Computed example of a mutant assay.
Amino acid sequence: MLEEFYRRGGWDTVLLMPGGEREICDAVSQDWFSAAGISVSCSFSQDALRALISDMRRSSRNADIAILVGGRAFGADQELALAVGADATAVDGREAIVQTHRLVGEMRHGSDRRSG
């Protein structure tokens, strides 16, 4: 569903579902991604998600990739998003698009994405 919001917003998207860690890291290492989103709908390990996000950043062809997290596990908890190493979270698809545009815009202008 979130993929459809991005497509309607003019973004090219790739959906990896369920997508294991290796598949995700391979994808970001092979193609240039401005942003990546991870949806978490139930309980999860913060340590495992933090490790995945760290591995994604290390593997990415884009050293400044913006990473958003969302889903029921996050709600709108920006602090939890930052705690796992993401740049932002959003409560719904519309806000995810807004946050992605903001983060990618800041990336292009060289500002600190985590300050907001």
Rank of each mutant, 00 (worst) to 15 (best):
M1Y: 12
L2F: 14
E3D: 11
R7C: 04
G9R: 10
W11N: 01
D12W: 01
D12T: 02
V14P: 01
L15F: 04
P18C: 11
G19K: 14
E21G: 10
R22K: 15
A27M: 03
A27H: 03
V28K: 05
Q30P: 04
Q30S: 14
W32H: 08
F33N: 10
A36K: 09
G37M: 09
I38K: 08
S45Y: 08
S45E: 07
D47K: 15
A51H: 10
I53F: 02
I53W: 00
S54W: 06
S54R: 13
R57Q: 06
R57E: 04
R58T: 03
R58H: 05
S59H: 11
S60P: 06
R61V: 05
N62E: 11
N62M: 09
A66M: 04
A66D: 00
A66G: 02
G71V: 04
R72G: 12
R72H: 06
A76D: 15
D77F: 03
Q78N: 12
T89W: 08
V91I: 14
A96K: 04
A96F: 06
I97A: 02
V98F: 11
Q99K: 15
T100A: 13
T100G: 04
R102M: 12
L103I: 01
G105L: 01
G105R: 00
E106I: 00
R108G: 10
D112R: 13
R113Q: 09
S115W: 05
G116T: 13
